[in-house]
Amino acid sequence: MLNQFTSSPIFGFTLCIASYLVGLGVKKRFNYPIANPMIIASIIIIGILVIFKIPLENFMTGGSFVLMFLAPATAALALSMYRQLEIIKKNLIPILVGCIVGAVSALVSIIALCRFFGISDEITASLIPKSITTAIATELSSQLGGLSPVTVAAVSVTGIFGAVASPYLIRWSRLNNSIAAGLAIGASSHALGTTKAIEIGEVEGSVSGIAVGLCGIITVILAIFL
């Protein structure tokens, strides 16, 4: 009976929405990056699946409906980049340099550290896209032969750390430069970092948003040569 119910798509889909609502509620009460609605929702769902011994495949019949929106959400990033067109035009060279350096340094440092720790190729491929936005990262991860759930976890840890640490990193680096700060946040900790960048300042938020899209595209292009 339970198995029959949980293997219908309506179960997984409803569970996603219900737990996301709980996550949003928690975020509203404690406005802090660690209170991330996605992570709260995922913990709730994992808990329910484990406690009621519901197979992951049953949940995913509904979950795959949600996943289908990944591609249009990625494409929607074009609109958020287009909205920053004026800033892009004015600072084209610094933005391009920043995003290329950001994408290259992330790629090189991840591969180097994975080698150093003797991490398997599969996990390395999952970690390579960890500094870019989840939508592009999961696609790139499976293209490189990685495990997309590991990628989502790495992207989340990166984003949460970036959102918490970026104000300190800006202070320690003595930047005094809004564009450099915004690009650094976007390149290192994608959309989650951008939420912090928006709080820091308008320019920081805008260029951080640009870096999210651009670094994603540049990383995908760099990955062609891996």
Binding site: I93, P94, I95, V97, G98, C99, V101, G102, S105, A106, S109, I110, L113, C114, F117, I119, I123, L127, K130, S131, A153, A154, V157, T158, F161, G162, A165, S166, L169, I170, S173, L175, N177, I179, A180, A181, L183, A184, I185, A187, S188, S189, A211
Partner: peptide, 28 residues
Amino acid sequence: ILWQFLFICIATTIITFFATAYAVKLTM
């Protein structure tokens, strides 16, 4: 691989942040 995983995530975020920030500052 939990500890290596966390270390790699955090260390590479810091490296990427500083590399990008100083590259942009130098360019400007």
